[in-house]
Design a protein around this nucleic acid. Structure first.
Lengths: 330, 330
DNA sequence: CCGCTATGGGTAATCGATGTCAAACAACGC
DNA sequence: GCGTTGTTTGACATCGATTACCCATAGCGG
């Protein structure tokens, strides 16, 4: 990092004005071919690269995509982000990731912060329930995992209700009537819809829902040990567990195994590499985080390129992968 | 997002100059108490927040920490990042994450990009072998996971050689003499040192190293199926596998289980939530990604706060957690 | 030879905040 | 009353790039 090379240095070396140099660099309007050549040479000689800060300040926009998620260490989001990054970087764009730790007020701060930085586009897994303030956002916004409220916008979703129904129906079909539900706290849409699916399955099968079987994990709660132990210590313990997301599954499965309670059936909404290696292998409702990332990034990049598109909600396909843990009899 | 409120708007409302308003906002030097009050009122009335871009441009530095890792979806880095974010956000700083996909030339680009953005500090898991160009970096730099080459700098490391020795010694102590090594390609320091440890263990125990047991996975390689199958199809297949990192373990363990080959002993350098739930549970060399993140962030934040510190290399503790897979007899 | 349109290029304002420097003013001692 | 010191304050330049606006030159037809 020697002294910064500025546009004016380039212009000086090319014996022209900054304006013309700027024209060449940004490919604008007509510039004489000899002048253009001189500027290009100077750029090369000085290894000049425009200052992204100054450029954004003037242009009012940056070539950065902002991504807002709950937590990077959540394997689901980690994969989504990985895919977004891959697509963005192919196009020479930077990605800024910010996490909300599942706190609604942090989300607001974080999103505002990104907008202040004039990101060119935003991909948000929102936990807040009001996005009206994004209506006049100065850049395209794509929602992932959870839909926008009070706002027409693109969204790439998972059919939460349907997925949960698949999983719970599957357990019911295998004879279970005492099924625990494990998910995030209900403030979060995804959790609510998945719970809805759970309830619906019960209703259709005419099984009453027992409130003591519903566990809503706080974001901060470090491990699932007590939860699992308490659940199995109930006078009438569940014979099956439906876990509404990978993160919950990762917390609870180890405890279940440590307790030797693999007789409890288990279905996870969301897969993970080692799930198939457990004994019994974990039955999952699979949805591809990569394709969510890909769809979202693609949509965003197209909007950023100026395509006029109507707001659209995309849903990624789901399928049940029976592997063993979901087929254990009660 | 209505029209942007600028400092001059605040100044106008408070009937003073932009400079004075700026003084109040940044708490610099002395300002008359009545003027200060007027400015503060105006800030509140207009909901003014300084433009981070303009501020950075002028100040020459941003309140953002740049983090460079191989890949966000690597569980090890995901945890490290999670911890860095938590610490940074407590102090109101933003974190920008960029990934290199384990490509040395991308690393250079990505790092330069962050420096151009005038990040206030950098945390790098570098895969390049020359950091001389960072010697005069305009901000503090802390290396994680892999040390700096050709440069005095802080680093938070894992004792790769010692960890590998622990793991391989353990396998040897349990009677194994045919031990496969599975790691990243050797261009990466971490991989090299871990392999060194593996070799050293063999030397000490007077066991020859068989080159056909050494697997160096390419970063792009999607799954470990063929690798595992090929390894076990050798005329004299290994009776044990030492996996040099969590990512490799996550790729190989499922295949091993799918093939029903849990008679092959397995030790993983790096733990993961489900490892203890497998049958047999996975013996690991445990090192805490969170504490790496914490140490690195702490060090960086202190430097950013201006503390003068001598370059220091920190090493996080390692311990062997025997769980079963590493104690399988040959 | 004049006026008109292209074309290439320069000057200076701008984005929004902050640093420099000096003016304005009060208080103080003499 | 005057010089001195110290506190507030503001005009202006600056960070580095982009752009609105204007000017110069050449080529053209009449």
């Amino acid at each position: 990092m020697t002294r910064r090379v500025r546009l004016s240095d380039v212009a000086a070396l090319a014996k022209t004005s900054t304006k013309t140099a700027s024209r060449v660099i940004n490919g604008h309007s007509r510039v004489g071919s000899d002048t253009r050549a001189r500027v290009e040479q100077a750029v090369r000689d000085l290894d000049y690269r425009p200052d992204p800060l100054a450029r954004s300040l003037r242009r009012g926009t940056d070539d950065t995509i902002g991504v807002v998620v709950d937590e990077v260490s959540d394997p689901f989001f980690a994969s989504v982000i990985g895919e977004i990054e891959r697509m963005a970087l192919d196009r020479g764009m930077t990605v800024i990731i910010a996490s909300t730790q599942r706190l609604a007020d942090r989300e607001r701060i974080v999103v505002d912060g990104l907008l202040q930085r004039r990101v060119a586009g935003l991909i948000i897994a929102s936990i807040s329930d009001d996005h009206a303030h994004l209506r006049s956002a100065p850049c395209p916004v794509v929602f992932i995992d959870r839909a926008a409220a009070g706002l027409q916008a693109d969204a790439v979703l998972v059919d939460d209700r349907a997925g949960a129904r698949m999983g719970v129906d599957h357990l019911i079909a295998h004879g279970h009537r005492r099924i625990a539900y494990l998910g995030d706290r209900l403030g979060i849409d995804t959790a609510r819809y998945r719970l809805d699916g759970y309830r619906e399955s019960h209703k259709v099968a005419d099984i009453p829902v027992r409130e003591e079987y519903l566990i809503h994990m706080e974001p901060s709660l470090a491990d699932g040990r007590h939860i699992t132990e308490d659940l199995l210590a109930l006078p009438e313990p569940p014979t099956a567990v439906f876990s509404a997301n990978t993160r919950c599954s990762l917390r609870v499965l180890p405890t279940l195994h440590r307790m030797g309670r693999t007789d409890v059936a288990f279905v996870s909404f969301g897969d993970f590499a080692t799930f198939e290696a457990l004994t019994p292998p974990v039955t999952v409702i699979d949805h591809s985080p990569e394709s969510i990332g890909r769809l979202a990034a693609d949509r965003l990049l197209r909007r950023m390129a100026g395509e006029e598109l109507a707001a659209k909600t995309m849903t990624t396909p789901l399928h049940l992968v029976p592997r063993g843990s979901g087929e254990v009899a009660p």
